[in-house]
Design a protein around this nucleic acid. Sequence first.
RNA 1: GGCCCCGUCGUCUAGCGGCCUAGGACUCUGGCUUCUCAAGCCAGCUACGAGGGUUCGAAUCCCUUCGGGGCUACCA
Length: 485
Amino acid sequence: MGKEVRVRFAPSPTGDLHVGNIRTALFDWAYARHTGGTFIFRIEDTDTTRVTDEYIQAAIDTLKWLGLDWDEGPEVGGPNGPYLQSQRLDIYAQWAQKFLDQKDAYYCYCTPVELEARREAQRAANVAPGYDGQCRDLTDAQIADYKAQGREAVVRMRMPDGGTTFTDEIRGEVTFDHKFVPDFVLVRGDGSPLYTLAVAVDDIMMKVSHVLRGEDLLSSTPRQIRVYQAMGVKPEDYPTFAHLPFVMGQDNAKLSKRNGEVSIAWYRERGFLPEAICNYLALLGWSPGDDRENVTMKELTELFTVDKVHSSPARFDMKKLEAINGDKIRALTPDEFLNWSLPFLTKAAVISGTDAEIAVVKAALPIIQERIVTLAEVPAMLNFLFVKNFAVAEDCVSKVNDAAAKSVLTRSISELKKLTTWTHDSIEAALRSSLIEDMGLKPRIAFGAVRIATTGSNISPPLFESMELLGQEVSLQRIKLALAL
RNA sequence: GGCCCCGUCGUCUAGCGGCCUAGGACUCUGGCUUCUCAAGCCAGCUACGAGGGUUCGAAUCCCUUCGGGGCUACCA
């Protein structure tokens, strides 16, 4: 109550940040912003065999792209740094030594092979597997003997008898009996710290007040609390825990490459807007409490509270993400839409980026804004305006080379040639009076032929607007070309 | 196996003992609109995992059961 809110997002970048990570980051960020607190970004890179600099940089870029700005962390610094655990090794070593001195921790000389054998035996005997405490009270002679054998020692935390009970903001009171929380390793044989040591130390030293993280860490909470105790932290100064439900894949398994793309970079390339991703992810495990679904980032920070977070896992649904992305695209201002679209157009080589091209794009975007779901569709939608070697799509040729279509196109040419003003209104008026009224054709038949001739496809943005953008000369050229098919 | 978490339409959710013949959104189906595709509008389909209690009354509280998930590392 009343304590300063400090939340952290602390990923271990062993790969690209995925949907689940980002949902956690989003909630951390939203909570910090909602409360006017501090959002800390910390990199948990104690597992040097799996974390790479590339992944760390990618994580930083992804958070930036999503608009999840942090107050303390990489690049921005802060008073509680450094924010990369790999740069805090001496801190962990000091605490580990203190725990050793206090007899809260002890050196364990068991080898991985021995441990595995004993665990196997425990499983076979149907006993809870876990460290059996063999090295808890070694004599000096035993230690000397192990050392003489050249054994490496890990530092292990002593779990006292009893249990740990804490209140999870999302799940309520949770209790773990220490019978099922074996003595755990704090420091590896090579002297490097483990997650269990580093998180706890950092959360305390960085004055983290609220730990919102994935529910996979729920059962590691008693171990962290044990470290707090050893650090001499008073219970009222422990962070508040809130374990977020998982984001699952379609088949109810943890999200993975197999059941849906998980990397945020993938969504970025596919033309999803950061705001759409955040909006959709916010709805996974949280709701404003009413029927609102479309929220901006700003509204999210205003509405987000932990008590509205679910305790049950949610399945990721691409269709709904797409629907929201479409909504967000439609809500873009013309300039925003232009800025988001340009990279996709140049990457697809539809335009090279000249001012003249951009002017056309700018004029054309309004007519496609409500017909696309992702930005990746923009190139295909506008390609007909820029294509050098225009040709009618294969599967559409048969629709414009019959007698009926040819008469439509012939008449269109003669009518359109006469126009002295070339606007979608004048084009429509000319075509309607000649093709529909004079020739008595159904609009979809008549305009369909013109559409294929001018845009090359039976699916296109609105016809008359498209022809206006194309210009009189090019439009006529293309219709003549179709007539020759 | 043990420990822990979770369980409302296909999916995301609203629901905190009577307002629930369970509401919204996405998907799907049908229709309207319409120059194609969209968008928009209307309609429809479909859910409280099961069984016991408690209560005048339960999706809401309790128990059991079944199902799903996590952890059980010198990963995080």
